[in-house]
Simulated scan of single mutants.
Amino acid sequence: MNTLKIRNVVLGEGKPKICVPIVGITKEEIIEQAKTLKEVILDVVEWRVDWFEGVFELDKVKDVLGDLRKELKELPILFTFRTSNEGGEKSIEVKEYVNLNKEVASTGLVDLVDVEVFTGDDEVKEIIEWAHKSNVKVVASNHDFDKTPSKGDIVSRLRKMQDLGADIPKIAVMPKCKLDVLELLEATVIMNEQHATRPIITMSMAGQGLISRLCGEVFGSCLTFGAVAKASAPGQINVEELNKVLNIINKSL
């Protein structure tokens, strides 16, 4: 598996990098959350723009991004509109979703954009090609809040993301039992060792899947999500506790 460098962060080597979400509703809340991250050990900041009250006004989105970049300095920024279909706060028309991601990639203020792979192959390719022309990397994602698919299906979804040209395939699934967590971890190993030509991100959600957020270095997931204030997905733990566990595992390998 190849590594991927985003600013000063290298994904795909060593312990999983930590991404912290910002989920404010107003500009003031968003910037205040960014300020609280200055003393936190983290690698990537995700702006979950679907929480933002002005998300459907491009000038407001770009205005917030400008201030976010000033606050976060050299920290990589991942821009994410998580749709309601995949656990997000709002729904959005496909055309508007494509335009939003393209416009944001063009600003030069973000380092990565998240694109839901089942938006449509043509639309996903359009965003990826546009982002790459703007020197922005793409996380292709899929979030299954209903179940954990079979390991074969998980691998198939990740390979589809890779085939479409995404820089980082990502999948998050919901376990219904302990075996579901093992299914996700086994799929991660299979993808990582047999198919991946780039870093991947996988996780099993909720409390039952917490172990998958901690053991990425063992099984092959390059990034994990931790919370400072409000979690953006079920199962995220405090970033300080997350760091401690990642360091313990890293030292034992």
Rank of each mutant, 00 (worst) to 15 (best):
I168L: 07
R159K: 13
E183P: 00
K38F: 04
L72M: 12
N250K: 11
G207S: 11
A187E: 07
N85D: 12
M161G: 11
T224I: 00
V139Y: 00
M161V: 02
K176N: 12
I6Q: 09
T107E: 06
R198G: 02
V181G: 05
W47T: 10
E53P: 04
R7C: 11
I127V: 14
L246D: 03
D144P: 00
P16H: 08
K70T: 07
T80N: 11
H143F: 13
E71T: 08
E241V: 08
V40Y: 14
L112N: 02
L42Q: 06
K251E: 15
D144R: 05
E86T: 04
N8C: 10
D114S: 04
S84D: 08
V155Q: 11
L214Y: 02
V10P: 00
E39F: 06
G14I: 07
A231I: 12
G209L: 09
K38R: 12
V49I: 14
N243G: 15
V110T: 05
L185C: 11
F81E: 11
R7F: 13
P169V: 01
I154Y: 07
T36E: 15
K125Q: 13
L58K: 04
T26E: 11
K244S: 09
A206D: 14
L100F: 05
E89P: 12
N8P: 06
I249L: 13
V20R: 02
L210R: 13
I211N: 01
K35C: 10
V113P: 00
N101Y: 08
D167K: 12
K133F: 08
L72A: 05
F145L: 14
T26D: 12
I92R: 04
L164E: 10
S141V: 00
E39K: 10
A196E: 02
K60T: 09
A227E: 04
D59N: 14
E240H: 02
I30G: 08
S91K: 07
D180P: 09
E29K: 11
S204N: 01
K73W: 07
H143K: 09
N243S: 11
V110Y: 05
I41G: 03
R82Y: 08
S91L: 03
I168G: 02
G207P: 00
K151H: 07
A227Y: 01
E29T: 09
D111T: 01
A34M: 05
I30F: 07
G226H: 01
G108W: 11
T197S: 09
V94T: 14
A227N: 03
P169K: 03
V218D: 00
A140T: 06
S232T: 13
N99Y: 06
L78R: 05
A231N: 03
H195M: 07
V98N: 04
E46C: 02
S221Y: 00
E46A: 03
A105W: 06
M205L: 08
P169E: 00
K151I: 01
T80H: 12
R82P: 12
I22V: 13
K176C: 05
K5W: 09
L112T: 02
I77R: 14
T148I: 01
E71K: 10
L78Y: 09
D114C: 06
T148S: 06
E57I: 15
K133E: 14
V138G: 01
L75M: 15
L184E: 07
T107S: 12
V94Q: 12
S221M: 01
L158R: 02
T80Y: 10
G207V: 01
